[in-house]
Design a protein around this nucleic acid. Structure first.
Ligand code: SF4
Ligand code: SF4
Lengths: 162, 162
DNA sequence: TGAAATGCGGATAATAACTATCCGCTTTGT
DNA sequence: ACAAAGCGGATAGTTATTATCCGCATTTCA
């Protein structure tokens, strides 16, 4: 069970978009080039982010993407769910219904005990992701990365932003 | 990103095996019939459980499986990781290395900020699963299921256990 | 002792999911 | 009007999951 690679791409793209001034935006082409990933496929992830309301799209020539809200109001969960979906990672096939001892008229009123535990774990995963926002990521990157790399990257991005 | 169906099967099988007296065991054939799943494929999941030390295998005719430890010492995480593996659900492709601004001699000493957040969430998921054991599951099932169904299922199982 | 039942591991398909690319369309700045 | 950019659908290529089959070793029981 692996998250799709688009999740990593989307998170990195949001980190980059977080570096932009509020009224600037960056094209999918630039984001793909910066991260070394195929532009066409990255576009699909960006479209998912757009549909989910995580980023705002500017159409037309010199169009592109910017964060739809301030970085402090966008969590990792918002980005991950935009790309990966909101369904639980555990899906119950209800195999308890196959129990040969079960009467045919049995009413499965509540979800099974196994599923509840798995869904709780899924909720814990999402809660953890919801607890970190893009502003926090930016702060961490500021600590992690060298001043030179940060400055160079910001320049690279701003040179291509509209 | 979905967990494989074998996870559900394995958890249910462990719940059933938890109903057995300590010195009895149940065949893959019986477990497959009880849950209405293909025996050959379920066997693969049971083999994973066996390799992970979650269940104990008895070979030969009239062989089968029993829990390797008391139900209170086997967590959901033990079962899930046996089937699904222990790798994080987020795998970092290290796309930061593609940053055109990054000097070639840059040393990526520590994992990236994005990956750390995703790994933390993965850890939260596993911690949640580790917090529930098979004895707790049995107790919940006792509350959830009707006395008739429990008794009938236990009889069905014990009739086929060796 | 031999036949049958059982688990194990490898090989092999069938199906689904993910990854990737392409194309026509609309939008919009110049 | 034209070119650059995003959008949505269509289409392959690749990988992962699901499922089945077979030969082998082990063990029970007749
Ligand atoms: S016990 Fe829960 S997970 Fe298992 S089949 Fe029933 S509802 Fe699904
Ligand atoms: S930022 Fe983290 S997740 Fe992204 S490529 Fe770098 S190491 Fe991987």
């Amino acid at each position: 069970m692996q998250l799709k690679s688009q999740v990593e791409w989307a998170l990195h793209c949001c980190a980059i978009l977080g570096m932009l001034p509020p009224d600037r935006h960056l094209s999918a082409k630039a984001l793909a080039e910066f991260h070394g990933v195929p532009k066409e496929y990255l576009s699909k992830a960006l479209q998912s982010l757009s549909q989910a309301g995580v980023v705002h799209t500017t159409a037309g020539v010199a169009g592109g993407y910017r964060l739809a809200r301030p970085a402090g109001e966008l969590s990792f969960l918002d980005v991950v769910e935009a790309v990966e979906g909101r369904r639980s990672t555990f899906q119950c096939a209800n195999i308890r219904a196959n129990n040969p001892c079960r009467p045919a008229d049995q009413c499965d009123d509540k979800p099974c005990a196994v599923a509840r535990v798995m869904w709780d774990a899924d909720a814990a995963w999402r809660a953890s992701l919801a607890g970190v926002n893009l502003a926090g990521l930016a702060a961490t990157l500021n600590d992690d990365l060298s001043r030179e790399l940060l400055a160079a990257s910001e320049k690279w991005v701003l040179d291509r932003a509209r």
